[in-house]
């Protein structure tokens, strides 16, 4: 008997009587899905937030707050050569500006997928990350987020909440472990 069959047989023999799945109703409570609630949590995670009218304001804001950026990749830009490059070459990207699908107020997380970001490693390998999210896409909790996301449409998706961080050295919080050292969220009107 293969290990597979052996494991499955043992599991079948030993598993307890099947119980029904619980309902997920009411778990969200009265958590607010507002921009203010989202901003508070995001800033607590070390991220920053700008409310803008539309994406055209982004270059000026980046120039003001990140004056030393050399290589910037903006997903949706006309320059698309990077998509076909070896992903390892994205190592020198200083700032990636990527679109988010949904934001979650209770924990600051934003859902991104490879439908919008064709190179998976981009939001991790860049030194700094900016996510653009329309204001109408903020939700109170993870339950609403999974409801909206629904069945998977892509091979990879990720919730990102704040910049990369670690507290492994004596529980001292340090931003910028392996992923982006900082995160800025641009909330567009609409």
């Amino acid at each position: 008997m293969s290990s597979r069959d052996q494991i499955l047989a043992a599991v079948k023999q030993h598993q307890p009587e099947a119980s029904v799945l619980p309902s997920l109703e009411g778990l969200s409570g009265n958590m607010p899905g507002t921009l203010e609630a989202y901003r508070k949590v995001l800033e607590g995670l070390g991220g920053s937030l700008f409310e803008i009218k539309d994406e055209s304001e982004i270059p000026a804001l980046l120039a003001e707050h990140y004056p030393h950026l050399q290589r910037i990749i903006r997903v949706g830009d006309e320059q698309r050569a990077w998509i076909n490059e070896d992903p390892h070459l994205l190592e020198d990207v200083d700032m990636a500006v990527v679109p988010g699908q949904w934001g979650v107020a209770e924990n600051g997380a934003i859902w991104l997928t490879e439908a919008e970001i064709p190179v998976r490693v981009l939001p991790f390998i860049c030194q700094h990350l900016a996510i653009v999210l329309p204001a109408g896409r903020l939700l109170p909790t993870m339950h609403e987020a999974y409801e909206k996301i629904g069945a998977p449409q892509t091979g990879f998706g990720v919730f990102i909440a704040g910049p990369s961080k670690t507290a492994d050295i004596e529980q001292s919080l340090v931003l910028g472990a392996h992923g982006a050292k900082s995160l800025v969220v641009f909330i567009t009107a609409g």
């Binding site: 993870m142 339950h143 987020a145 990720v158 909440a161």
Partner: peptide, 27 residues
């Protein structure tokens, strides 16, 4: 949704880990 709300809050008192990556297909 249930587990990601509980995990990091229980572990380190964060609302969620920075990255919750969903791997479905190889690239």
């Amino acid at each position: 949704g249930v587990f990601l709300r509980l995990l990091a809050r229980s572990a380190t008192g964060q609302p969620i880990t920075t990255y919750s990556s969903h791997f479905r297909q190889p690239r």
